[in-house]
């Protein structure tokens, strides 16, 4: 409950934030704090410097890029996602899933950037953003780069955002003809996921990503391939999921054995795909 000593700064621009992150050893960005403050309370980790992004208004916006991508600032809260008309128009699954993250208080503070950069295996947004094919914009003092979702999530607390860098926004392609789905099993309603799966079904094919089965979201590529040209009937989707569980090496813990998670991965993937296919425009 009681944190170690820490230094704190609240920059007013992204440039200043990046300079602080790069200039101080052991500096960490502080977004909504809904994970990092808890980690510091348990003293499981103790950053030397917290760089509070609270004043960076430019990271709090939701809008569209010139080429029509939905752009979500890293400091956009889950509550903002839930209530955004842009999200509702472009990719409503984001709001739908964000509305089930923890509770009102956490959604009011917790941010998109925080959720993805922490990349706790049970977090909702990493598998969803992988399924949606999002891209991540990362700033450093020298440059700005864009990383696709498949390359962004590396491990627990480990993403493509390196030392001295800052995630500034997440870009998501609009739905167009795609349908999206999300399913899984939680510990209690809106609780922590035991396993979850996100899926998107479009003319370009199917993308499926699983959460809670490894240190980072796992694409179910074999299942995706088997669904090419599928009629998305319950039977054919279930058939496509065969073998998915066996291809995984999920953890065992108090909430489920590895075998249970392998099984849930198949069930969740099937449910997410069926939901996505059912929502696909013209389906």
């Amino acid at each position: 409950m009681l944190l170690r000593e820490v230094d704190y700064a609240r920059p007013s621009t992204v440039e200043e934030a990046v300079a602080l992150l790069a200039g101080y050893e052991g500096a960490r960005a502080l977004a909504g704090g809904q994970t990092i403050v808890n980690v510091m309370k348990s003293r499981a980790a103790a950053p030397d410097v917290l760089v509070d992004l609270a004043n960076l208004e430019e990271l709090r916006t939701i809008g569209f890029s010139a080429d029509g991508l939905l752009e979500i600032g890293a400091m956009v809260t889950c509550a903002q996602l839930v209530n955004s008309s842009e999200v509702d128009v472009a990719r409503p699954i984001l709001a739908e899933v964000a509305a089930t993250i923890a509770d009102v208080q956490v959604r009011n503070r917790g941010t998109v950037g925080g959720n993805v950069c922490v990349n706790d295996p049970t977090n909702h947004l990493p598998p969803l953003l992988v399924a949606l094919g999002a891209t991540f914009t990362i700033r450093s003092r020298e440059s700005e780069r864009t990383v696709p979702a498949d390359e962004f999530f590396l491990g627990v607390y480990l993403t493509a955002v390196g030392e001295g860098e800052l995630l500034t926004k997440v870009s998501v392609p609009p739905s167009n003809d795609a349908g999206d789905g999300f399913a899984g099993v939680t510990i209690g309603k809106h609780g922590t996921y035991i396993v979850d799966a996100a899926a998107t079904v479009s003319d370009d094919g199917v993308r499926i990503a699983l959460g809670c089965v490894a240190a980072a979201p796992v694409r179910a590529t074999a299942m995706e391939d088997r669904l090419a040209g599928s009629d998305f009937s319950a039977d054919s989707v279930a058939a496509a999921a065969q073998g998915l569980g066996a291809s995984l090496d999920p953890p065992s813990d108090v909430h489920g054995s590895a075998d249970y998670r392998r099984h849930l991965a198949e069930v969740s993937a099937v449910r997410a795909v069926l939901q996505a296919a059912g929502r696909r425009k013209g389906a």
């Binding site: 704190y8 809904q34 403050v37 309370k41 509070d52 208080q105 009011n108 503070r109």
Partner: peptide, 30 residues
């Protein structure tokens, strides 16, 4: 009040600029 040390219980809920937040998951400086 304080009822847990992991931000789960909400006993410490206050309103910050009108919205409920858990005051055990915020630094005072924030």
């Amino acid at each position: 009040h304080v009822g847990c040390d992991t931000g789960n219980c909400g006993a410490c809920t206050v309103q910050l600029d009108g919205e409920p937040v858990k005051s055990c998951m915020l630094l005072a400086v924030q």
